[in-house]
């Protein structure tokens, strides 16, 4: 697929930004995201190739602006919907409940 993910050789990107003594994960949610990605695919019958393809199917603007683990999770949500495991509504509803509880 000739998509935005095929970045090799593209012009227009600035310097490579590096972080001194970078931690393996930057936020607690990234750890959970890594774990979800690690286990979920094989449990719902998604192959590695299908998982990668899901990331490549994200909108180009999202692909370039979302953080790495954000991309993983947006792609995972897509696969969960496509495989009939969860709906977007279920996820949004649970997010609303969690936000509500946090403020309560």
């Amino acid at each position: 697929m000739d998509g935005i993910h095929d970045l090799g050789g593209m012009h227009g990107f600035g310097p490579v930004v590096r972080e001194e003594d970078e931690p393996v994960f930057h936020h607690p949610w990234e750890k959970r995201a890594f774990g979800l990605e690690f286990f979920t695919g094989s449990r719902i019958g998604v192959t590695g190739d299908e998982g990668r393809h899901a990331i490549e199917r994200l909108a180009p603007a999202t692909y370039l602006t979302a953080s790495y683990y954000e991309k993983w999770m947006l792609a995972l949500q897509l696969l969960l919907e496509e495989h009939g495991v969860l709906t977007a509504e279920q996820i949004e509803q649970r997010m609303a409940e969690l936000a509500e509880n946090a403020h309560g």
């Binding site: 959970r32 979800l36 690690f38 969960l80 495991v85 969860l86 996820i91 969690l98």
Partner: peptide
Amino acid sequence: DIALRVKAMEQLLTEKGIVDPAAI
């Protein structure tokens, strides 16, 4: 938003028995 999304997905997938938080 992403932190909430991940938390929601982990909870829902745990309830369905697809992931185990301890294994994560």
